[in-house]
């Protein structure tokens, strides 16, 4: 895939946000907040960073592969998969509907290209990514494994089992990213279950921590991901703390947990789309 300019990538982000909003609006269910906040990450990853082949193969041999552990960001992931050629963009209209490959949470069962594991029940993805990374090591495959987790998800104990394992086994061909938006369904993480000093926690678990302070700025995300890549292969697993704003891109959705799992109504959709230019053509 040819490298795109920052301006082009930003346009794709805007389209991804439109896709997400239209998808959750159409079925009046789903999770718009977090994928709006992760648009830059998704687009930077799929259109710039990943050495991947949209002609999908489950084992991902010889490719960088990505796992989404916080499966409720499915609308955003489906959009970026479709927009980068994994399946027809028109299929986005089937999201969460009966007989669709685009399940409410990502699944392999319907064989949607791009998806290698079901996710939705939180806390499991990092372990899966570790296994995939170790399979690459056995095969002497020098490509990388990426995984995105939510910050609220870090409240699950399994994440820390995996964190401990990764450092002990020196899984250094893995780049994990935490969507550090400080929000979860019931409210701000600080209020629900304070994550305290995440950087210190991951460092104490033996990880190389790379902070990406402007997670909704394309240039900053690209630089951050490049830096993360440079940190691989040095005996330590790598973690990006990606500071984002839930609901970014729509003024009345940004920075609150209220849009974590609530779709916009007709009026709100119109208002939101008014703030997001149709750049690549709606599905």
């Amino acid at each position: 895939m040819k490298k795109q300019s920052i301006e082009q990538l930003q346009k794709t982000c805007t389209q991804l946000r439109r896709d997400v909003l239209r998808m959750v609006h159409a079925v009046q269910s789903g999770h718009p907040g977090a994928p709006l906040g992760c648009a830059e990450f998704f687009v930077a990853l799929y259109f710039d960073q990943l050495r991947h082949n949209p002609d999908f193969k489950m084992d991902g041999k010889g490719e960088d592969i990505f796992f989404l552990s916080n499966g409720h960001l499915s609308a955003g992931w489906y959009s970026v998969l479709a927009r980068s050629g994994y399946f027809p963009v028109s299929e986005l209209k089937t999201f969460r509907k009966l007989n669709s490959r685009l399940q409410g949470h990502p699944a392999t069962h319907e064989h949607l290209p791009g998806i290698r594991i079901a996710s939705g029940s939180l806390g499991q993805g990092l372990s899966v990514a570790l296994g995939a990374a170790q399979a690459k090591k056995i095969d002497q495959d020098d490509k990388l494994v990426y995984i995105l987790m939510g910050d609220g998800e870090l409240q699950e104990g399994q994440v820390w089992e995996a964190a401990m394992y990764a450092a002990h086994h020196k899984v250094d061909n893995l780049i994990a990213t935490v969507d550090y938006n400080g929000q979860q369904i019931d409210g701000p993480t600080k209020k629900i279950m304070d994550l305290m000093n995440l950087k210190a926690k991951w460092e104490a678990f033996g990880w190389e921590v790379n902070e990406i302070k402007e997670g909704n700025d394309m240039k900053s995300v690209l630089e951050g991901l490049e830096k993360a890549k440079a940190l691989t292969g040095k005996g330590k697993p790598v973690l990006n703390l990606l500071y984002t704003e839930m609901g970014y891109g729509v003024d009345f959705m940004v920075g609150t947990h209220k849009w974590h799992g609530s779709p916009p109504n007709d009026e709100q959709l119109a208002q939101a789309l008014g703030q997001l230019e149709e750049t690549l053509g709606d599905y």
Binding site: S127, Q134, A135, K136
Partner: peptide
Amino acid sequence: RFFQTGIAEANMIGISAGLAIGGK
């Protein structure tokens, strides 16, 4: 080809799934 996971069974199951993705 053998991985000691420590006392962490949930992680072991997830790692297994990941290894299976890679054809193991």
